[in-house]
Design a binder for these strands. Structure first.
Ligand SMILES: NC(=O)c1ccc[n+]([C@@H]2O[C@H](COP(=O)([O-])OP(=O)(O)OC[C@H]3O[C@@H](n4cnc5c(N)ncnc54)[C@H](O)[C@@H]3O)[C@@H](O)[C@H]2O)c1
Ligand SMILES: NC(=O)c1ccc[n+]([C@@H]2O[C@H](COP(=O)([O-])OP(=O)(O)OC[C@H]3O[C@@H](n4cnc5c(N)ncnc54)[C@H](O)[C@@H]3O)[C@@H](O)[C@H]2O)c1
Lengths: 218, 218
DNA sequence: AATCTATTGTTATTATTCTAACAATTTATA
DNA sequence: TATAAATTGTTAGAATAATAACAATAGATT
C-alpha cells in the first residue's frame, strides 16, 4: 500500500491550520465548515478541503469538520502526539532564548540539554537545564535518545558541528546558523535564516516605496 | 513604464544568492557561470538565469556573471544599500537576543531603540541600546524615522501593539509572536513562526520513521 | 418518509513555477 | 581574422499548485 506523496506546500500550511483549530477549540467552537475557516484564515475554502483531504476524510457532508477531532488528527500528522528529545548546541543569545521558552515543551519538544564550548558557561543552568561541555555530547545524545539538535553557534563552526552531531546519532537539525549544511539524505534539516527574512522585508519596503513614487508620477 | 511583477518564489531565493555571492567575493572569485553557481547552490542553472533576468541582464554571454557586480546589484534590489531604522518591541529572551546580534547593523538594519512594559527593564542597556518604556514609543518612532518594528512580545498583546505601532508610523513589522496580524494593506508583515518551523521538522521525522517501517515490511 | 439544504470529497480547469532547449552573442583560440 | 567554445537571455514545454465546479451525501425540515 503506497502512500501518496504530500506536497511541501501543504505541509507548510498544516501548522497554521493546527494553530487556528487550537484557538477555535479553546474558545469552545465544536464544528466548523471549510467556508467559515476560509474567511478566518484568508485562504480559499477549496484549498482547505483539498489540503485536509490529502490525509483522509476528516469532514462530513452537510456538517463540516469537528474542531477537536481535526485538531487531534493534524497533531498526529505533525507528530505532536509523541515527545521529541532536543538539545541546543550553542548557549549564546539565541540558544538561551530558545532554552528559556517553555512553550516548546507543551508541544512535546523536550529540551534535554544545552551544550557550549565556553568553559565559563559550564554548569550554568537555563530554566533548570544545565549547560554542558562538548566532550559530554556523544554520550549524552546516546543516553537521551536525542533526535533534534538546535544549532545556534557561529556559522564558521556550524558545518563541522553538524557532522559531529549526525555522527553521534542526531536525526534532525534545526539550523539557525547562516549557512547551508551538507548532510546525508536521511538527515532532516530545517533552516531558520533570520537575516533572509529581514532582507525580504527590506525588499518589500523598497519596492513599495518605488511603487508609490511611480503612482505620484501619473 | 510598467514594472513586471516579480514572483514571491523569486524574492525568497534572492537572499540566498546574495549570501553565496558574498562568500564567493570574499574568497576572491571574480566571475561565475550559472552552471558553476548551480552546482554550488544545488539549484538548476536555468532557474538561476531566469531569476536574475527578472531584474535585468547582469551576465554576459560566453563570460558569465561578474561576482562583485552581481552582489552589489542584488544588494540594491533587496534594499540593502540603504539603512533601515528598527526598533525592538519586547525586551525579553528573543528581543534581547536580536538586539545583541551585531550583524544586522552591517546590512543596514540599525537598531535605534528597544521597548518594553516592564519597569524593571527601564534604563537597562543591551549592546549599548537603552530599553525604554512604551510611553516614549510614539515620539521615538517619529523622531527616529523608524520603519521596521521587531515584535517580540507575548501573542496575546501582539495584535493590539501592532496596531499601535502602525498608528505611530511604523511601515513594516517583523513578527515573532505566534499570531496573524491584521493590518492595512500598505503595512508589510514578515512572520517568523519558530514553532511552525519546529512542527515541520517533527512532521518530517514522523514521516521518515513511517517510511522506514514500510520498507522493512517489504 | 420525503424533500430540502449545507457542505464535503473529488474531478476539471486555470495559474504559477520550474526545467529544458536553443538561438544570439561574447570570449578564447588557431 | 576566422572559427570554435562557452554561456547567456529567452522562448517553449512540463510539472506543480491553486481554484472552481459539481456530484455525492449527511443532516435538518416538513
Ligand atoms: N541572535 C540573533 O538574533 C541571530 C540572528 C540571525 C542569525 N543568528 C545566528 O545564530 C547563531 C547564534 O547566534 P547568537 O547570537 O546566539 O551567537 P552568540 O555568539 O551569542 O552564541 C554563540 C554561542 O556558541 C558557542 N559556540 C561557539 N562554537 C561552538 C561549538 N563548536 N560548539 C558549541 N558551542 C559553540 C559560543 O561559545 C557562544 O556561546 C549564529 O550563527 C548567528 O549568526 C543569530
Ligand atoms: N523565545 C523563543 O524561543 C520563542 C520561540 C517562539 C516564539 N516566541 C515568541 O516570541 C515572543 C517573545 O518571546 P520571548 O521568549 O522573548 O518572551 P519573553 O516573555 O521573554 O519576553 C516578552 C517581553 O515582552 C514584554 N512585553 C509584554 N507586553 C508588552 C507590551 N505590550 N509592550 C512591550 N513589551 C511587552 C515583557 O515584559 C517581556 O519582557 C512571544 O510571542 C513568543 O511566543 C519565542
Amino acid at each position: 500500500m503506497e502512500e501518496k506523496e504530500i506536497s511541501k506546500a501543504v505541509i507548510k500550511r498544516l501548522p497554521r491550520y493546527y494553530r487556528y483549530l487550537g484557538e477555535l477549540m479553546e474558545s469552545g467552537v465544536e464544528r466548523i465548515s471549510s467556508n467559515e475557516l476560509s474567511s478566518k484564515m484568508k485562504v480559499t475554502a477549496s484549498q482547505i478541503r483539498q489540503d485536509l483531504n490529502n490525509f483522509g476524510g476528516f469532514g462530513q457532508q452537510g456538517y463540516g469538520y469537528n474542531v477537536k477531532h481535526l485538531y487531534t488528527e493534524i497533531g498526529k500528522i505533525l507528530g505532536l502526539d509523541k515527545n521529541h528529545n532536543v538539545i541546543i548546541v550553542g548557549a549564546g543569545n539565541l540558544g538561551q532564548a530558545i532554552a528559556n521558552y517553555g512553550a516548546f515543551e507543551k508541544r512535546g519538544f523536550i529540551i534535554k540539554g544545552i551544550f557550549d564550548v565556553n568553559p565559563r558557561l559550564q554548569g550554568v543552568t537555563v530554566r533548570g537545564i544545565e549547560i554542558r561541555m562538548i566532550d559530554e555530547l556523544e554520550q549524552f545524545i546516546k543516553d537521551n535518545n536525542v533526535q533534534i539538535a538546535a544549532l545556534t553557534i557561529p556559522k564558521t563552526k556550524a558545518a563541522e558541528m553538524a557532522e559531529l552531531l549526525v555522527k553521534y546519532g542526531v536525526k534532525a537539525i534545526w539550523n539557525f546558523a547562516h549557512t547551508d549544511l551538507n548532510l546525508p539524505d536521511d538527515i532532516l534539516i530545517e533552516n531558520v535564516h533570520l537575516s533572509e527574512s529581514l532582507m525580504r522585508l527590506s525588499y518589500n519596503i523598497t519596492r513599495y516605496e518605488k511603487e508609490r513614487l511611480n503612482e505620484n508620477d501619473n
